[in-house]
């Protein structure tokens, strides 16, 4: 089991993600964004930060980094892909997850703990959690308001693709959505940072159940 953490110019949570995975006893390595394959990895994390300066829109330039074609191939063959914060924004821009992330409703940068509810356990991120479980995980973003049209929201609900919701909506996200998955469940994105909730000493260890699920041996072959 080896996890790859993609590093774009402007990523800033790659060490947190790497250390979090390694603290679970799993091998992890960085993948530079110009790589054209993700061979040898059993899971890929797109970490938080400000890839390519967030110029144009968060994730808009990063989605055209060479590594993203490899990530798309990996995802379509069933590989586990997790986008955290900026990584979630990149996945929506790349069309690997539905919807988009907009500026927070209050137009303020938010850096605070949030309480999440696990809405679906049918994803590589939440398969170790239980439905209805509450998790305290911090957010750290300016553009975290999940947005989608009515038809997309209806299909998200119909397909059980809403993975996590906020108990108290901090940013104006539609339907309190904090994280979504693709239909298959092998691609997940969320705005909160589970890699920053790995130790009670630092406020919360509730991110562990999420990342432990993610680093578990892949269900499908790829």
């Amino acid at each position: 089991m080896k996890i790859g953490v993609v590093v774009f110019p402007g990523s800033n949570c790659e060490y947190d993600a790497l250390n979090a995975v390694q603290s679970l006893g799993v091998e992890a390595e960085f993948i530079w964004h110009t790589n054209t394959d993700v061979e040898g990895f059993d899971g890929v994390i797109l970490p938080g930060g400000f890839a390519h300066g967030d110029y144009l829109r968060p994730g808009a330039i990063a989605r055209f980094s060479p590594v993203m074609e490899a990530v798309a191939r990996f995802a379509s063959s069933g590989g586990a892909v997790l986008g955290i914060c900026n990584g979630f924004q990149v996945l929506t821009e790349a069309g690997l997850l539905p919807g988009a992330l907009q500026k927070n409703a209050g137009l303020t940068f938010l850096c605070q703990p949030t309480t999440l509810v696990v809405e679906s356990t049918a994803s590589v991120l939440t398969r170790g959690a239980t439905k209805g479980q509450e998790l305290v995980v911090p957010i750290n973003h300016f553009s975290g308001a999940y947005t989608c049209d009515d038809a997309t929201l209806a299909s998200l609900e119909a397909n059980d693709q809403i993975v996590l919701r906020y108990t108290q909506n901090p940013n104006g996200s539609r339907d309190d959505i904090a994280g979504v998955r693709n239909v298959e469940g092998n691609v997940v994105g969320l705005m909160p940072h589970p890699e920053r909730a790995m130790s009670t000493l630092l406020g919360s260890a509730d991110g562990r159940v999420l990342l432990e699920g993610f680093v578990r041996a892949p269900v499908g072959a790829h």
Binding site: Q102, K103, N104, A105, G106, L107, T147, D149, G172
Partner: peptide, 11 residues
């Protein structure tokens, strides 16, 4: 149309 615009609203 229909997408919330917090920036426009604030202005």
């Amino acid at each position: 149309h229909g997408i919330a615009d917090p920036e426009g609203a604030t202005i």
